[in-house]
Design a protein around this nucleic acid. Structure first.
Lengths: 399, 399
DNA sequence: GTTATTTATTCGGGCCCCTGACGAATCAAT
DNA sequence: ATTGATTCGTCAGGGGCCCGAATAAATAAC
């Protein structure tokens, strides 16, 4: 079941090649694998035998109809390894996938409002349930990724500013959850993972330069540039609540909770509606509904929100040059909203950049978590650590 | 001289390891190399022999003083390969380095004002002179990088918007220059290269998250995030002239040349001084000098410039979370200016980020070009192409 | 039934890495 | 000056891995 303790680099590379072919051309014969990977038939065969013994692969039928001997077809076995994706927000969503990236199950429920340790307990419970349903065990999951709000320190993996869920920043989530579930846990910012979700299974598939603008309770940004997620020195890349847009950035409120956040965050939108003379509302959703129903005050607030969002988008475009901006979050994902933003943006940006609404919606976070968990598992099994890095340049010398 | 036509992956890795050790611990014996690389003495010795035969390496004396047999020390030979860095701006700067990154020579002169093909001719002439002085030949240079203003398309390598140097966008610079010099040429945006220069030899050494804010004729940004240069889909990342800062972004001037650029570009600064009632000036430098001499109007303009620059910096901080911002360009590199910007920024950003003035100044571009040329040469000789990429995830399946 | 074709395994050769042993060169001490 | 300890570099043997060729097995077409 575990990979062979030591494997030479050459063999590891062969294994990696074969695995990649299996991943993308699923039912495939040994002969075909040899052709696709460029390896010799024997090497391929040896690798497949090893995979078979590890339970990583299983035969599924034979070819037929073609001239010549029939070939046994193989595919990655669902028992070869599982990964778990978790999205911890207002709701708790957990999803289970196998090593081939097939999503086996998904479940969600409201997050335990007591937060902190209770939420972790809840995660363990939900994960255990999914695992049992699929005849595995949490401890047999090879890779777990947790989507959490707040800034995740890229070095320590600690959650440094967790709004919404109380007491999360004080816990060593990686250690606690890892112990509960018996597998390595990695935490990543929820918006970043939603972005990766859209890139894997959503509206940004196969793109290398995508920005994800999330408007919900707060405002946030995920950046995927040149095929990689952008985290920044403190994992705070994309914390655009502090962008100097929509007001005087030196004002007290701006400095406290961020200039843009003060205007475009959920409370900001409701406050603007109230200030405009609108009657009391207790959710942003209501403001949008009234706007659609013909309330001119609400429409003005929505329009201004779209304008500010477009300014944020223009800022992102000028800074990192994405080819697509995805709007997400409970506010941003509204389909009519994307159009409004796009219309303003047309007059702001030097060149047009496409804007789309998130297609995965609430699922984006878990899907992204799964994608990272999967990638980590693949890297663990078939990565070639020593080679990933480019050759470091020599330091300057005084000669 | 050329590397062996075919080498197995294993040997290529060994070569790479040994080369890296040679690069960083220069005069070093075979025995020491074996220890450092973790390879056996045998393998190390074979690799060194091969390097020696290729002329990549040369003996330089022996150890002495230690107990035991003396060891022959080796270092990378300057004849092992050369790289060329070129910065094509108002002045043309060319620098030559060897494969170990030792800068052998540097020369600069005003760029041929006729632009286009004449400038390319001038580059060839200057490169030829440097090469001759160091007993080599342009055609023996293994890697050439050209720093050019404008947006460089990351796929084609074409210069898409070249201000200042006339007719450059119309030429296929890579092909023309490559033919003239007989070596592969790569073009990269000058600001990006200045940033890489500061990271290699300047004020940002060994940092992984750096932004370079260039204020000169125009305004531009270079981004180095998580250890990699950020280019964006069209190579237009960092084109922050269009940031919606410093005015109404929907105004005619803003839409034409960019909102921020209109205020902070050289002509913008002079215009603002004029509009404030200042007497005629014909360079930004003059405005700064008058400010220092006590002209309150000029001081106001400088202060406002610093404020807008700080807003741009705050934008960058909120977006990509750098640990350092380097100010460069003829205006930005002024040491007093960085202080002014830092002071404003302190009140804008949620957490303090260091600001420094460029230490390489005008040389930053060439140095950065050298660093990229060097990296490309190293990758060409010792890269392991098949391993660079991470395993792609499988696409979603409909099952 | 025979033939052509495709699949899968076996065998020998070559590359490359590692370990252990050996001669060579040097310093330190007698 | 000789001896011993230490380090350097090379030689030889063993094992892992990859490849190409040959061979056996299975199947469609004729």
């Amino acid at each position: 079941m575990p990979p062979p303790p030591t494997a030479s680099v050459a063999r590891q590379l062969s294994r990696r090649n074969v695995f990649e072919a299996l991943l993308h051309r699923s039912p495939i014969s040994r002969a075909e694998l040899a052709k696709v990977t460029g390896l010799s038939k024997q090497t391929t065969s040896e690798v497949i035998d090893a995979f078979d013994q590890q339970g990583l692969v299983r035969p599924v039928g034979r070819t037929s109809g073609n001239v010549g001997r029939t070939a046994v077809l193989y595919e990655l076995s669902p028992e070869g390894g599982h990964v778990l994706g978790i999205d911890l927000g207002a709701r708790l969503t957990v999803a289970l996938a196998d090593i081939a990236g097939r999503v086996l199950a998904e479940a969600d429920e409201p997050t335990d409002s007591r937060g902190g340790a209770w939420a972790l307990e809840q995660i363990a419970r939900l994960a255990g349930r999914l695992a049992r349903e699929h005849h595995t065990h949490p401890s047999r999951m090879r890779s777990i990724v947790l989507a959490a709000p707040g800034v995740v320190n890229p070095k320590s993996g600690a959650i440094e500013m967790a709004p919404n869920i109380s007491g999360l920043g004080l816990l060593n989530v990686v250690a606690l959850l890892g112990e509960k579930l018996g597998s390595p846990v990695v935490i990543e910012n929820d918006i970043n993972l939603a972005l990766l979700g859209e890139i894997w299974h959503g509206c940004a598939q196969n793109l290398a330069n995508v920005a994800f603008l999330a408007l919900g309770t707060g405002v946030g940004l995920g950046l995927y540039v040149d095929g990689r997620l952008v985290r920044g020195e403190n994992g705070a890349a994309g914390e655009i609540g502090y962008l100097p847009i929509g007001g005087d950035p030196l004002q007290a409120e701006s400095r406290l909770q961020g200039c843009l956040e003060y205007q475009v965050g959920a409370t900001g939108i409701m406050r603007r509606y109230r200030e405009a003379g609108g009657s009391e509302v207790d959710s942003v959703r209501e403001v949008f509904e009234r706007a659609q129903a013909g309330d001119p005050l609400a429409a003005g607030v929505v329009e201004e929100t779209a304008r500010l969002t477009a300014l944020a988008a223009a800022t992102v475009i000028a800074t990192v040059d994405p080819q697509l901006i995805v709007l997400g979050g409970s506010v941003g994902a509204r389909p009519d909203f994307a159009d409004k933003v796009a219309r303003v943006l047309l007059r702001l940006a030097p060149r047009p950049v496409e804007i789309r609404s998130s297609t995965l919606g609430k699922r984006a976070g878990v899907v992204g978590a799964l994608s990272v968990a999967l990638r980590r598992l693949h890297d663990e099994l078939f990565g070639v650590a020593e080679l990933a890095a480019t050759l470091p340049l020599p330091p300057p010398r005084t000669r």
